[in-house]
Amino acid sequence: MNHILEKHTLQDLLQSWRQDYDVYLPQKMENFSHFMPLTETSVLVDGDPHNTRIPPKALFLPMNEALVKFTRFGGYEDAKHEIQSRIVFGIRPCDAQAVQLLDTSFIQEDNIDPLWSERREKTITIGLGCHEPCQTGFCTTVGYGPFDRADLDAMLTDLGETYLVETFSEAGEGCFLGLPVASEEIYNQALDIQRSAHDQMPVAFETENLKGKLEQNFKSDYWDTVSQSCLGCGVCTFLCPTCFCFDIVDETQRRERVRNWDSCMFRTYSLEASGHNPRPSRVERTRQRLSHKYVYWLDQVNQIGCTGCGRCVRYCPVGLDIRAMLRQAQTLPFEVSHAA
C-alpha cells in the first residue's frame, strides 16, 4: 500500500518504532553518515545525498565478530550473540540489492551462515530511493536502479515536504500503519520522480560482452595497465557493499575464534604456508576483484556482483575508477565463437 509521511513527523515515527525494535539509520559521524542505532537524542540527517561511507552489509556481517568460544580443556562452543529485532531505515537501493546478492552466498540450502541469516530474519529494511543522482554511482549501468525494490520491506520517495511510502511486505506495512493513504495523483508524481531519477543516471560503460572480454583476456597486459597505480590497500573492497570475504583468526586472550573483514587486494590474503602465492602482485589481485564482480557472480547467480554504488570510485586513495577500467576493458579483443 502507498502512504504519505510528513517529514516533520518522521522523528516521532522513528522513536515509536524503538518500543519494539532497535532502529538503525544513517547519522552524522565526522564528515560522513554512518548507520547507527537511534537514541532519544539522535539528530536526523536530512537531505544528505551521500550514501553512508560504510555500506550496510556491516549490519549483517560486522567488521569483527566472534564465531567460536574456546572452553576449558580444549573444547569449543558457538559464540553467543544477542540479535535483536531491528528496523534499518534509509538503506539505499544499491545497498539493498547488495545485501540480497550476499544472501545467495550466506544463505544456501544446507549451508547457512547462522549469524548472517538470523540478522537478516530479524531485520525490516526500509529503503530511501535516490531522487538525485550521486556523483560516482552507476546503478543503472549494471542493471539496477535508484528506486529498485530489491527485497526491501518498504521504500520512501522524497517529495520535498513529504515522503511517499511504498510498502512491499506485511512487516513493511506494519511500520506505517495509520498513515494516510497516498492519492493516485501523489503516487503518479512520485513515479515521475523515480523515472526521472533513473533517466538521469548516466551510462558509465557498456556491459555487452563485458564478461566474455574479461574472461578471454585473462592473460592480457590490460591488467598490468589498470592495476599500475593501485596501492594494494583494502578501501575498495571494505567499502564495497557486495565484497564479503573474511578472515578467521584466533584471539588467544579473548579465547575466541573471530572473523574479520578481509580483502583480496591484500598480499597475505592468498599467501600459502609453503610461501607460494597464486596472486603474487597487484595485477592478479586487481584481476580477481574485477573478475569476481563482472565474471564469477554472473556464472553463479546470473547477476553482476556490483550494484554501482560508486564507493570504490569515490574513496580510492589514488583515484582508480572502476568505470574507466571497464570502459577500457570494452576495447579488448573478443571472439564471439568462444563465448558461452
Binding site: E30, M63, L231, C233, F238, L239, N260, P317
Partner: peptide
C-alpha cells in the same frame, strides 16, 4: 576507533 583496518595509510 573509526578505523576499518584497510591499511590505506600504510600502503600510501
Amino acid at each position: 576507533e573509526r578505523c576499518i583496518r584497510c591499511y590505506a595509510c600504510r600502503q600510501a
